[in-house]
């Protein structure tokens, strides 16, 4: 007899598909719950203080009822932009070296080294920053704990991750292009500049954006080296406080509207990350394939 079961996928396929769907739904629900929780906790601040005052109050003095998040927002943005601008060019150079200049054996060890660096906990980078970098900057231009220190420590921290991702996008450039370039007697640098980098630009860009995401969320290392003074910095040597550091520093003793305002700053962070993803998706240089 001809049964419908002989035509449909097997029972185990159904089972697998169901489990996979469940997992997908679960991760979506987790995100949704996080957002709901944040909004719920931030709601008192949004109602009592209002969205406008979070950006227009005279300063951040929660105990006195002043809730201006703007200095911390500036701190977060500047540290992040600085870190990525320092790290991305170095990461491209590192990726090019590993992929095109280093002999195979050296490249292998070099790659392992970077993977190891990517695995170092952020607090260790923070230690190094505190003990080595901050005194150095202090000698150059007191006080020492500063926007610059945060940028440098963060740059070193995200460099391995961006470098690995960028190397992966360089490695993904089709071999045929490279063969073609070599057979034409192009120098290595000509090949990299004119063919590899344009072909890989989408991946390179995506790697930098991931770096931005990591830098935005980093808390510990930044907290240790930035000085945490609530102010809009007037130079790179001025201490700053980031949104994440602010939350970590104050959540332990905050209550009432103060606590709620910290959750509001959490929402702000979430929105920034969301904004970056959207912008990155919109301005992302497309692959030249099929154009």
């Amino acid at each position: 007899m001809f049964s419908i079961n002989t035509l449909s996928p097997s029972r185990s396929d159904y089972l697998l598909a169901t489990v996979l769907r469940l997992c997908a739904v679960l991760s979506g629900v987790v995100l949704l719950l996080v957002v709901v929780f944040l909004v719920q906790e931030a709601f008192p601040a949004l109602r009592h203080v209002g969205l406008v005052r979070l950006f227009t109050d005279d300063s951040w003095h929660p105990t006195e009822g002043l809730y201006n998040l703007l200095p911390m927002l500036w701190g977060t943005m500047l540290v992040t932009i600085g870190a990525v601008s320092l790290a991305a060019p170095l990461a491209i150079l590192s990726a090019m070296f590993c992929q095109f200049y280093a002999p195979v054996s050296l490249a292998r060890w070099y790659r392992r080294l970077i993977e190891l660096l990517a695995g170092i906990p952020s607090v260790v980078y923070g230690f190094w920053g505190l003990v080595v970098l901050v005194p150095m900057i202090g000698n150059l231009h007191p006080p020492g704990p500063s926007l610059l220190a945060g940028m440098v420590v963060l740059a070193i921290m995200i460099l391995p991750t961006i470098a690995l991702l960028m190397e992966a996008s360089l490695a993904a450039v089709p071999q045929e292009y490279l063969h073609g370039a070599l057979a034409l007697g192009l120098r290595r640098w000509t090949m990299i500049r004119n063919i590899v980098l344009p072909a890989a630009r989408s991946g390179l860009f995506a790697s930098a954006v991931l770096g931005v995401g990591r830098a935005l969320g980093e808390t510990m290392a930044v907290l240790m080296v930035c000085g945490n003074v609530v102010q809009i910095p007037h130079s790179v040597f001025a201490p700053v406080r980031t949104l994440t550091a602010n939350i970590a520093l104050e959540i332990a003793y905050a209550f009432g509207t103060h606590r709620s305002a910290l959750f509001a700053s959490g929402i702000l962070l979430l929105l920034i990350v969301l904004g970056i993803v959207v912008v990155a998706d919109a301005v992302k240089p497309r692959w030249t394939y099929g154009e």
Partner: peptide, 26 residues
């Protein structure tokens, strides 16, 4: 040497550039 000896591969492999740049680059 590779300027004196040209090569064409099995799979067409123009660079992901314009036609002009493909020829102008070498």
């Amino acid at each position: 040497l590779r300027r004196r000896v040209g090569m064409v591969f099995q799979k067409p492999n123009p660079f992901p550039l314009s036609v002009w740049d493909n020829l102008a680059l070498p």
